Simulated assay, not measured.
Amino acid sequence: MTLTINVFGDSFPKSVYDAYTAAHPNITIKENRADYGAHHNNLQAHLAAGSGTADIEVIEIGQIAGYLGQGEKFVNFNDQGVDPAQWSPAKIKQATATDGSLVGLGTDIGGLAICYRADLFKAAGLPTDREEVGKLWPTWEDYVKVGSDFISKTPDKKVKWYDGAGHVMTGILAQEKNTFYDDQGEVIAGTNPVVKQAWDLSVTSIQAKQSAALAEFSPEWNTGFQQGQFATITCPAWMTAYIRNNAPETKGKWDIATVPGGSGNWGGSFLTVPKAGKHTAEAVDLAKYLTTPDTAVKVFKEFGNYPSPVKTWDLPEVEDAKDAFFSDAPVGVIFPKSFANLPEQAAGPQSGVIGVALNTALNQVEQGEDPTTAWEKALKDIEAAAG
């Protein structure tokens, strides 16, 4: 029997799959990977058609709300012997459908930090020690101010402060309770001053020539890591694996500092089992295995994805973990600090779509579009998404 799992990005290392198939020699696991947008769009299309889904589908935290009205199309993990206490109440709530069913099991949490190139900081005369670096930007406004300082001092004028403005805005909004939706489930993205302030600060940084204008997950973005085209990046825990895998030769040049504002969550995913899959019972067993505390710790050790099962957070191999690639940064301390006091964030069915609309608009500004025009276009896209 072959079980298929549709993913985006680095979800599980081969060693985790191999351990499962060694204990289940009748099963082969086939992972299919697509980019973030295509993956979620394909899932929605297959659910609507009632066929074509994988046995397991990964859904990202920014997208999960868009599936909660379709609980009947997924296996309810509440009926599958799953202990909800394995995760925080907030994580369970995020994957609980409107009909009360639990449609997803949490894999990781995207605690926020700033990953930075210590060698590029040194060349520009900025501090390189992670504690001192974190003190440079208690707020996002300070982060942008330091960016202008870096741009003026870096000897290589081709090097920018960060990769793309969409990630600056994402980082700012990742520490707010209400961004695109209010507590009643109404879309407020176009009228929420928090969103406009994040947009304006991101535009200010673009106008200050701080952005490398690289679209995330693009070949150009990958090259940016490899060639040191930017000095910092808004860095959820899962980003560390992406940097490590795409630019292995930069080991030891990176370090990790506290995120501006001190908190934030960007990312984290859920495993779902669509009822349209061919092997739902076996898929449930695999999904439960892939989200156990033991497996979550293995993924953390190999990929850096911070585990969501709460009992793992105090384990020595997590709490005391350091990342050699990032100059032995204490990742077991830095990332959990960022979501320790994070408010429960409101989301809605179109949160992912709205985020993409705003990021796309910022990219247009990076390409020369007038900011006011780009903002008005984004508002129209948001209005269309809200229905």
Rank of each mutant, 00 (worst) to 15 (best):
T179L: 06
Q44I: 06
D18W: 01
N178E: 15
D285H: 10
L379W: 00
I382P: 08
A346W: 01
S308W: 06
F335Y: 14
A208H: 02
M239L: 14
E60V: 14
K91N: 14
Q197F: 03
D156Y: 02
I27L: 11
V299Y: 08
R33F: 03
W238H: 12
V82S: 03
A48F: 00
Y36T: 04
P260H: 04
A85V: 07
A329I: 01
T128H: 05
S269V: 01
A346D: 11
G104A: 09
D10R: 12
G185M: 10
D255Q: 10
V356T: 15
S205Y: 05
F325D: 00
I109G: 08
I233M: 03
Q197M: 11
P316F: 08
S148T: 13
K275N: 11
A165T: 12
G261N: 01
T250H: 09
G190A: 10
V75M: 06
D142T: 06
T191N: 10
G81S: 07
A45L: 12
G332A: 04
G304A: 06
P343Q: 04
W313C: 02
A54L: 01
Y306K: 01
E186H: 15
D79F: 00
S338D: 03
K251H: 02
W238T: 12
E216Q: 09
P349E: 10
K122L: 12
Q70D: 14
F121K: 08
K153Y: 04
T170V: 11
K278R: 07
Y181V: 04
G164P: 02
S338I: 07
F121A: 15
A321G: 05
G37K: 14
K311V: 15
M169Y: 03
F230W: 13
F150Y: 14
D370K: 10
W199N: 04
D149N: 12
N305R: 12
W254T: 04
A97N: 08
L286G: 09
V310E: 11
D370G: 11
I64R: 01
K311C: 05
Q367R: 13
G190I: 09
A247R: 10
D79L: 14
R117V: 07
G267D: 06
K196R: 15
A329G: 05
L214Y: 04
I334V: 13
F335E: 00
V310I: 15
A85Y: 00
L120S: 12
E319F: 08
D183S: 15
V7F: 08
K377Q: 14
D18V: 07
H167M: 13
A124C: 04
D285F: 01
E60P: 00
I233F: 02
N341R: 01
A45Q: 14
G355K: 02
Q86N: 13
K377S: 07
V103E: 04
G147A: 05
K278A: 14
K153F: 05
K278M: 09
R33N: 14
T170K: 10
E383C: 00
Q229Y: 11
K30L: 10
A65M: 10
A361P: 07
I151S: 13
E72H: 06
A174T: 09
E132Y: 00
